[in-house]
């Protein structure tokens, strides 16, 4: 499978996430779109890791080239899990203070 197909797929998923962040006002949906973008990047990293592995395997058969990308994906998942717990706590706090999760109300820094 050519690497370009994977790049196009991940770009499409990432752009859908960008469009979601730009067009929705529900804070939880915006947060979910950020998760979608993170996952698109993860999938691209895994595809690149297998691309590098395929190139290195032709030279040395039992190589571990490309394993770093998969470790990176693992760490991205770790950070995403921590980020989600904090972000949802912040959203709950916002809801408790304003009784809404509309992100347009979060402009207090402006004035």
């Amino acid at each position: 499978m050519p690497i370009e197909y994977y790049i196009f797929l991940c770009l499409t998923l990432f752009s859908i996430g960008v469009i979601g962040v730009l067009t929705r006002r529900n804070a939880i949906i915006v947060f979910m779109c950020i998760e979608l973008m993170l996952n698109a990047v993860n999938m691209l990293l895994v595809a690149f890791s297998k691309m590098n592995y395929a190139a290195a395997q032709a030279i040395t058969p039992n190589t571990t080239a490309g394993i770093d990308a998969q470790i990176f994906v693992f760490f991205i998942m770790v950070v995403a899990a921590a980020e989600v717990s904090i972000g949802l706590a912040i959203i709950v706090m916002i809801y408790r203070n304003t009784h809404s999760i509309d992100i347009n109300f979060l402009n207090r820094l402006k004035n």
């Binding site: 499978m1 050519p2 690497i3 370009e4 994977y6 790049i7 196009f8 770009l11 499409t12 752009s15 859908i16 960008v18 469009i19 730009l22 067009t23 595809a47 297998k50 691309m51 592995y53 395929a54 190139a55 395997q57």
Partner: peptide, 29 residues
């Protein structure tokens, strides 16, 4: 928002298509 996201996608696809270092590289399935 949709226009901005769509043009972002178009720009990146055009960049990838133009780039020669990705051509002929295969992913090992």
């Amino acid at each position: 928002g949709v226009i901005a996201g769509g043009s972002f996608l178009t720009l990146l696809i055009a960049l990838v298509k133009q780039n020669t270092s990705f051509q002929g590289r295969d992913v090992l399935l």
